[in-house]
Design a protein around this nucleic acid. Structure first.
Lengths: 227, 227
DNA sequence: ACCTGAACACCGTTCAAGT
DNA sequence: ACCTGAACACCGTTCAAGT
């Protein structure tokens, strides 16, 4: 009676052990390749050769996983220590904010998730710390810097959420056109201020508008004292 | 051979004819009663005694329906014509923005949807027109008003999306606590600026912070010329 | 021509029952 | 004690087949 020997389980394990970091890394890879929409618990489970229930041993829920993805994304962001000689510290701050927004621009769905997430990862804290330091370097008082950094990050994240370069935002495109058309065709008698503003309402490249918005907000943050 | 007479189909029609407005009104009622989460195409269909496919004759998709819900919500918003005697026109502008944000605060999920929607309904245009008029009344040049109104509305909508009073935001609550804890426990050696800012980072009622953010942004909008 | 039943192709999360 | 198969309770959208 020949008995079939089971192949040693320790050799070439097709199934690597599940870990939180491994799940996050797999999620990151799928997000880069196919966008956050495809990063579902079921997809990750099948990618890791297990059932969806197993992921919940290492991750509280899908939203927490999105927070981990943001932190992986921010790992490569570099920050200037301070403004160079003859450099406007506000320009350095604006470009740092633009750098963060650019990263999120490629993943608008992640930006949408982050907007309601209150991220707490180490790289996100590094971003907050860098922005606070740059605000202080612009001469902004500490209380205004503390309240201001939140608003600046919100503006950056919301802009990435609403704009966005991936095909996923193609859904929203027809509605953007609808607003454009509505503004242009608005009855001047009923909407006189819209008529007065005219094409200025929708003019200019998105990045120019974003830079201007950052500059305006930084100016206000530095001038208006907190109550 | 008695034949059963069919009951006249024209009497007491249990099924009112489907219309776009009727669908939107039903959606609005469900949203008020149970939140936007419950406003699904399937739920609306069963509420209207039909199949989900029938709704697509009158509504392009769920996102377009959310735009209609926003416009219904904005129908009751009133706007001040101008600042009264001895009244700061900036305060009037701030309170108008707070009024819009308050309405959205009760429906954070709608705010999330609106953020990527570019609304185009008549009441939304009325809101844009009113804000433009108030900005002009503050002495803000037309180009800055035109670019500014977009950012102000984005800030309002994003704040409503991320805060929010309904139980639906209870999901996000543990993460808000996680950020709070992370900021408080941040290593001062690694995050010196966070340590310096201390509790100022999370101090103050949400509404005070929002009013301050509006004030700061309005100040910047009025001072920084568009490129 | 207009409307819709049924199907397509999925979701996140839980929990009883395994090992 | 730790892990997971299977189920629960849903989604938005499409299209062939009806009336």
């Amino acid at each position: 009676m020949p008995s079939s020997q089971p192949v040693s389980r320790r050799e070439r394990p097709a199934k690597p052990a599940l870990t939180r970091a491994g799940i996050a890394a797999t999620a990151f890879r799928v997000m880069q390749a196919e966008g956050l929409e495809r990063v579902t618990m079921r997809r990750l489970a099948s990618e890791l050769d297990t059932g969806p229930a197993s992921l919940y041993v290492y991750v509280r829920n899908a939203s927490e996983l999105h927070g981990a993805l943001l932190d992986l994304l921010l790992a490569d962001l570099g920050y200037p220590a301070a403004a160079g000689p003859g450099e406007d510290p506000r320009d350095v701050l604006v470009e740092t904010l633009v750098g963060y927004t650019r990263v999120l621009f490629s993943y608008p769905s992640l930006a949408r998730s982050v907007l309601i997430l209150r991220p707490a990862g180490p790289h996100y804290l590094t971003l907050i710390d860098a922005l606070l330091r740059l605000l202080r370097a612009c001469g902004v008082p500490v209380t205004q810097s503390a309240w201001g950094v939140d608003v600046l990050l919100q503006l950056a994240t919301a802009t990435a959420a609403e704009q966005g370069t991936r095909e996923e935002s193609a859904e929203a495109a027809p509605e953007a056109d609808a607003q454009l058309a509505a503004l242009r065709q608005a009855d001047p008698a009923r909407y006189p201020a819209i008529a007065e503003a005219g094409d200025e309402l929708v003019s200019g490249p998105a990045l120019d508008r974003l830079r201007w918005a950052f500059r305006a907000l930084i100016t206000g943050i530095s001038e208006v004292p907190v109550p």
